[in-house]
Simulated scan of single mutants.
Amino acid sequence: PALRTDPLVALPTEPPATAGGWKVREAPSGAEYAASVEAAVARMRSGEFDKVVLARTLELSTDSPLDLPAMLQRLARRDPRGYSFAVPTGAGRTLLGASPELLVSRHGNRLTANPLAGSTPRSADLAEDVRRAAALLESAKDLHEHAVVVDAVHKALAPFCTELDVPERPTLVRTATMWHLSTTVTGELAEPATSALELATALHPTPAVCGTPTGHARDVIGELEPFDRGHYTGMVGWSDARGDGEWVVTIRCAEAEETRSGGGQLRLFAGAGVVADSSPEAERAETGAKFRTFLDAVGVDR
């Protein structure tokens, strides 16, 4: 059955077969990433632009074959309320992940979008975890970052709707590794023929994965990120012949590739929204926490 309705999703998974057998390389390094954030913050404080999402990667390699179904099951069981996916992207290559962020869904005349922006890593200590969640709800920096994204979603969807409900304040959603500020936007379509895919392409890319202004932020990403994002921060989902569908943002993901020697490689991605009040060290720590979604699924402890 669908992963989210599979009763086995509540059960613990077997430990990864390749645990301890991975070689890990940062690209860029944590220090280089922090320097890029610092450079972006300086440019924003000078008034050049408002927000940019900067990402980094981890490259994992192993001599053992990749067990992608097992990885997907572990991702789904760690975050059963997320959107787990595995999509072939070429010969011997697969994009897989567990996204927490619904870009948009359409069922009949009703649409739903759930932008996430503003995050903090979770803690294994319950009291500290609650403190971090409460602090996120009151963080001026994160509330501003979130408001920028929600405003962009509102403006993109409004032309398609006769009514659109946008809550004034965000709530919290949690994954196994992160707390996120969340707003659930709902609306009624003006034209029943408007498909989920049309809505998704009108929204993408939101400031949650690019920045604002969009064009300028995309240029800054090209200048400061020393890699090609590929399918990362794109969108993955489905639409049917009636136009119903569900599209999510391709985050908390990795590109998997089989090697000729019989082993495998994983390229993990993680990004953070950078605004003028951002701390380079805090954004580096946030991307490190986001990597944990996939590192835990493959048994890498770093």
Score class of each variant (00 low, 15 high):
residue 9 V to A: 15
residue 230 G to H: 05
residue 152 A to G: 11
residue 186 T to E: 12
residue 11 L to F: 13
residue 208 A to D: 03
residue 53 V to G: 00
residue 10 A to G: 13
residue 56 R to N: 03
residue 201 T to A: 03
residue 38 E to H: 02
residue 216 H to S: 10
residue 146 H to Q: 03
residue 227 F to P: 11
residue 135 A to L: 13
residue 225 E to A: 09
residue 232 Y to E: 02
residue 4 R to L: 09
residue 260 R to E: 15
residue 190 A to M: 09
residue 240 D to W: 07
residue 78 R to T: 14
residue 88 P to R: 10
residue 224 L to P: 08
residue 66 L to R: 01
residue 52 V to N: 05
residue 239 S to W: 02
residue 115 P to F: 00
residue 21 G to D: 12
residue 52 V to S: 04
residue 88 P to K: 10
residue 180 H to P: 00
residue 90 G to H: 13
residue 198 E to G: 10
residue 83 Y to A: 07
residue 55 A to W: 03
residue 212 T to S: 14
residue 151 D to C: 06
residue 168 E to T: 14
residue 188 E to L: 12
residue 268 L to V: 15
residue 155 K to S: 14
residue 212 T to P: 00
residue 297 A to R: 00
residue 132 R to S: 02
residue 32 E to V: 10
residue 38 E to N: 08
residue 290 K to C: 03
residue 63 D to G: 15
residue 146 H to P: 05
residue 179 W to Y: 08
residue 264 G to K: 00
residue 85 F to H: 08
residue 72 L to T: 14
residue 245 G to Y: 04
residue 236 V to I: 15
residue 57 T to V: 02
residue 10 A to F: 07
residue 13 T to S: 12
residue 282 A to S: 13
residue 14 E to Q: 15
residue 229 R to M: 04
residue 50 D to G: 12
residue 298 V to C: 05
residue 265 Q to W: 01
residue 69 P to Q: 11
residue 78 R to V: 04
residue 54 L to C: 04
residue 250 T to H: 01
residue 218 R to K: 12
residue 287 T to N: 01
residue 93 R to W: 07
residue 221 I to F: 12
residue 296 D to Q: 14
residue 132 R to D: 06
residue 7 P to R: 06
residue 166 V to R: 07
residue 55 A to P: 05
residue 91 A to H: 11
residue 238 W to T: 11
residue 128 E to K: 04
residue 159 P to Q: 08
residue 264 G to C: 12
residue 45 R to M: 09
residue 161 C to N: 01
residue 232 Y to I: 03
residue 163 E to D: 15
residue 153 V to Y: 06
residue 5 T to K: 08
residue 127 A to T: 12
residue 298 V to D: 01
residue 157 L to M: 10
residue 21 G to Q: 14
residue 72 L to D: 06
residue 45 R to H: 11
residue 292 R to G: 04
residue 193 A to Y: 01
residue 126 L to E: 15
residue 27 A to M: 13
residue 92 G to H: 09
residue 115 P to Q: 07
residue 84 S to T: 14
residue 286 E to V: 04
residue 166 V to N: 09
residue 53 V to F: 01
residue 229 R to A: 05
residue 2 A to R: 15
residue 9 V to D: 05
residue 99 S to Y: 06
residue 100 P to H: 02
residue 266 L to V: 03
residue 73 Q to A: 12
residue 193 A to H: 12
residue 82 G to L: 06
residue 198 E to D: 15
residue 63 D to M: 07
residue 51 K to A: 06
residue 104 V to F: 02
residue 115 P to W: 00
residue 70 A to K: 06
residue 160 F to H: 14
residue 64 S to F: 11
residue 164 L to A: 08
residue 42 A to G: 09
